[in-house]
């Protein structure tokens, strides 16, 4: 590229652009902003994002969360220790064993899925993947076609 030409082009285009004025903002922009500010101001503090909470509330919530976490950790450690000793703890551990059953069922399901995939073979899996990609491309193509038809100039003229 010719450096002198580029320089002249830059200053020429720059001159044209600098001569442009400002766009006029939509007349209701200020109203929209003021409405949004009022809406935000009317929102109670606990429904705003945490960073917008008053400082004392943020500090209190942080302390509260830390205390709750500490109590939970302490409680679970105690529970594990007492599990074999008290009937209440045994009752709780029985309930906890239910989650264990759910976990085992999920594990079995995953194993079955793995086995099924292995028995299908790579060709079938590859075929499935290709089919999925083809379906996606078809959707995209159809979407594009619809969009082009929707926004096509009505008089059919193009420059």
């Amino acid at each position: 590229m010719n450096a002198e030409y580029e320089k002249q082009l830059e200053s020429c285009v720059g001159r044209e652009l600098k001569a442009l004025g400002e766009w006029e903002a939509p007349p209701d922009l200020a109203r929209r902003v003021m409405r949004a500010i009022e809406r935000r101001a009317a929102t109670p503090w606990y429904r705003r994002e945490w960073l917008a909470w008053p400082m004392t509330c943020r500090a209190a919530s942080l302390v509260g969360l830390m205390v709750a976490f500490g109590l939970l950790s302490l409680g679970s450690a105690r529970l594990a220790h007492l599990a074999t000793l008290t009937p209440l703890a045994q009752h709780v551990s029985r309930w906890l064993s239910l989650t264990d059953a759910v976990w085992k069922a999920a594990e079995a399901l995953a194993t079955a899925l793995g086995l099924a995939l292995r028995s299908l073979g790579p060709a079938v899996i590859l075929g499935g993947a290709v089919l999925m990609v083809a379906c996606y491309a078809a959707c995209l193509g159809l979407g594009t076609l619809c969009l082009r038809l929707a926004f096509a100039p009505l008089n059919g003229k193009s420059s």
Binding site: G143, F151, P153, S159
Partner: peptide, 14 residues
């Protein structure tokens, strides 16, 4: 993908 198409369409339609 779509906006490029739209942009061209707009230009074509003047």
């Amino acid at each position: 993908f779509f906006s490029e198409l739209l942009g061209r369409g707009r230009e074509e339609a003047g």
